[in-house]
Design a protein around this nucleic acid. Sequence first.
DNA 1: TATAAGTGGAGAAATTTTCTCCGCTTTCCG
DNA 2: CGGAAAGCGGAGAAAATTTCTCCACTTATA
Lengths: 216, 216
Amino acid sequence: MRAPGQLRADAQRNRELIIDTAREVFAEQGPGATMDEVARLAGVGAGTLYRHFPDRDSLIHAVLADALERMIALAQKAREEETWAWDALSRFVRGCADLRLDLLISVAGEQVHRVAGTPEINEGRVRLLEVLDQIVSAAHDEGALRTDVGTGDVMGVVGLLVRGLPALPAALGDELRERAARLVLAGMRAHPAPSPPEEPLTSEELIRRFTSERDS
Amino acid sequence: MRAPGQLRADAQRNRELIIDTAREVFAEQGPGATMDEVARLAGVGAGTLYRHFPDRDSLIHAVLADALERMIALAQKAREEETWAWDALSRFVRGCADLRLDLLISVAGEQVHRVAGTPEINEGRVRLLEVLDQIVSAAHDEGALRTDVGTGDVMGVVGLLVRGLPALPAALGDELRERAARLVLAGMRAHPAPSPPEEPLTSEELIRRFTSERDS
DNA sequence: TATAAGTGGAGAAATTTTCTCCGCTTTCCG
DNA sequence: CGGAAAGCGGAGAAAATTTCTCCACTTATA
């Protein structure tokens, strides 16, 4: 028995599939990507897309709300499950980079400006910053986080990391981002832990991987 | 007296103006931005744009070549003028972030793929990596740069930084990027210099500035 | 000042994007 | 299982956007 407002199972699946796809497409092409492109990549017809989201704004809004919820969940889970606030912070920063949440960064962009001011989004933003503030100040208290690094810095760094390096072979882009995240976290430590030495990424290696992965 | 192939002075000015504008527009909207938009923002007529660059490819190519030259000049100047390789590296990373060179990152992107393989561009890429390699290994030698950070890491980090945070009030975006650059550089130091403590960017401050600068 | 080089921008033509419509398929309740 | 309601895909008309030419006008240079 289905409640009256409830979607049919396949419709619910499609709805989520569309949001997931849209998040990635928007992340790669910006919020101006065509609706038909989103539909095509989601593997649904244009009609299906428009039934769920009558216009671009409502799709963008759904993506934003969904992305915010994911970040909040990520932050809460990290805070609850990690013993040290530093580890929670580290997990949050890395986790965000994996979420492909570009759009969130544009919360003030012209394109998404009119949908980013809804009560739902604003309230989500506040909730996220609350959790992050807790993590950040706990990390300060345990002496792991530089005192001159605040929640705003964390969000700024996350904003850069989530954008990634499009246009690069995915595996290479992901690795560069992961390495950058590690550098940023190292730079945030109050008393830098001696990270175990590993191999640097040389320019030869960069070019070699760039070429071979692109052509494969 | 003008050499026969030489452009008239105003035409030369316009040509450079168009390249500069295109670099910024491409940085913000991706290489798919409309030609007319580039012309409009450059303050020239569509006809002028098309006379200088008959098609999108030739404009993208000119922007790429110009951007590469700027990065090379930046790296060379930093290497020559700074006593310490670390300072040269630091200057290069910050300098790149200011150049709005997004497009360069997409050197492999589908959109620019066909123009990024020209001998001119390839040769420029090699020249840039040569200078950077010199700076990076000198920084290793002076013990300032972590041994597990290579030229590829530097380029990866620069790639993230140059993209910036569009859609944010410019001043705020620039500051977040500057702060992120400092964190990254701190994370790259072998024996972190005790950076002078300054104020953290709190979430309240982030929101306050975001709101007030957006509305102004 | 004369001449050739360069310019702007209106607008036709081409392309892209949006979004509806409807015959067909799937879910799900009894 | 069978019927009804919900949902689906995608062709294609209509709208919007983008490209790119053309030429009367302006500007730089010798």
